[in-house]
Computed example of a mutant assay.
Amino acid sequence: MTTMRDTDRALVQAASAVAKLRCRSASHTAASAARTAEGRVLTGVNVVHRAGDTCAEVVALGAAVTQGVGALETIVTVGDRGRTVISPCERCQRLLADHSPSLRVIVGPVEDPRVVPVTELLLTPDVAD
């Protein structure tokens, strides 16, 4: 576990702002914000559909790839219109670790979030609780 930086707090605020603005239906319930090492922030929202769901982390990662961004530095996902921090699901943890092995993930309650390496999430799924 590492210390939250001011840029990490700003990333939580960015994800929360997207969640408040775009997550207003049962089809979109979570928003992710990811930051590159250069400080660029990319966002995405989940897509819930009867054919299958796509997590917000996957959408943010897709936006990064589409825009030519390499590895991501930090990511956070929020739900409940920005009131909760959500840990990536196991599938997203694996995808994020494969794409950005040194990725930092913000987890924990929104009032007291903390940062963990994505590889630690893979080893101990309960770290986000």
Rank of each mutant, 00 (worst) to 15 (best):
T43L: 01
L72R: 03
V107D: 11
L103Y: 05
A63D: 13
R9H: 14
S102Y: 09
Q13M: 10
P88C: 08
E73N: 09
D53W: 02
V12T: 08
D112S: 13
R94Y: 02
R114I: 06
S27M: 11
L123H: 09
D98R: 08
A56V: 04
R104D: 15
S27Q: 14
A15G: 07
D98Y: 08
S87D: 12
V12Q: 02
S32N: 09
A60N: 07
G44T: 02
A128R: 10
C92P: 05
E120A: 15
I106D: 13
G70M: 02
T54S: 01
S100M: 05
R40P: 00
S100P: 07
L95V: 10
P109A: 14
V127Q: 06
T66P: 00
R91M: 11
T29E: 14
T119D: 14
G108W: 04
A37W: 02
P125C: 04
P109S: 15
P101K: 02
S100K: 10
V105D: 06
L122C: 01
D80R: 14
P109D: 15
A26S: 14
D112W: 08
V45M: 01
A97N: 08
C89Q: 04
A97K: 07
A128S: 15
A63Q: 13
R81M: 03
L72G: 04
G62D: 14
I86L: 13
V116F: 01
A60K: 03
L123Q: 14
V118K: 07
Q93L: 02
A63F: 05
V105K: 05
A30C: 13
E90L: 10
D53G: 02
V76P: 01
S102E: 15
A10K: 11
T66A: 15
D126E: 12
G82F: 00
Q93P: 00
P101M: 06
V78E: 07
G82N: 07
T66F: 02
D8W: 01
L61Y: 05
S87E: 13
D129S: 10
T74A: 07
V110S: 07
A15F: 04
S102C: 09
L42S: 06
V47E: 13
T54E: 13
A63V: 12
T124M: 12
T54Q: 11
L95G: 00
L121F: 05
L72Y: 00
L123E: 15
C23M: 07
H49Y: 05
V59W: 03
L21F: 03
H49T: 09
V41G: 11
